[in-house]
Structure formats: C-alpha cells, structure tokens
C-alpha cells in the first residue's frame, strides 16, 4: 500500500512539474500578443510560478506571524468574560 502511494505521489508530482515546464516553454516561445491587453507581469515568463510560490509562503508567514503575535487565543477566551 505504501509503495502504491509513493508511486502515485511521484507520478502526480512528475505530471504537475511537467505541466509547469510546458507552460513555461509556452510563455518563452509564445510571448503575449500585441493586440491583447497585457499587464507588465504577464510578459515575464514564469512570473506566475514565482508569484504563486512566494505569495503562498508570504501569506502563511503573515497569518502565522499575526496568529502568534496576538490573534490566537485559547478556546474559552470570550466565555471567560
């Protein structure tokens, strides 16, 4: 069962990585056309990959940081009133 799970996990990771590489290749060889309304970041190949990765890490860091700093309290925080 564990072997099957490992193989499935590896296959999924490979397929997803393949998709990302395909999309990157497409962006490099087919830059957005002149006619389309393009934001500056859409002209940078791989921008969305970086944005997704760094954005996700930033959101996790921000949420957990705020949680640790003052947002997270025990379950009976309001009931103790």
């Amino acid at each position: 069962m564990t072997i099957v799970r490992t193989i499935l996990r590896a296959a999924l990771a490979t397929a997803l990585a393949g998709l990302v590489f395909l999309s990157l290749a497409f962006q490099i060889f087919h830059p957005p056309g002149e006619s389309r309304h393009v934001s500056w970041w859409e002209s940078i190949p791989g921008f969305f990959a970086l944005f997704g990765f760094i954005g996700c890490l930033a959101l996790i860091a921000l949420a957990l940081g705020l949680g640790r700093a003052f947002l997270r309290k025990n379950a009976r925080y309001y009931d103790d009133d």
Partner: peptide, 30 residues
C-alpha cells in the same frame, strides 16, 4: 491556462513544504 497552471502548482508546492506549520490548533482567533 499557462498562468493558472503555474500559479496553482507552485502554491501546492509551497503548501507541501509548509504543511507541518499549518497543523490545525484549537482556539479562538481574534
């Protein structure tokens, strides 16, 4: 489609890296 694939797959990668940090905690969030 290319943009969306990159955005989602790399979000998945970042989540996988940080999944231990995201373990749920019981409590109140202010």
């Amino acid at each position: 489609l290319s943009e969306t694939v990159q955005l989602l797959v790399l979000t998945l990668a970042a989540f996988w890296m940080c999944r231990r940090l995201l373990e749920p905690h019981a409590g109140t969030v202010l």
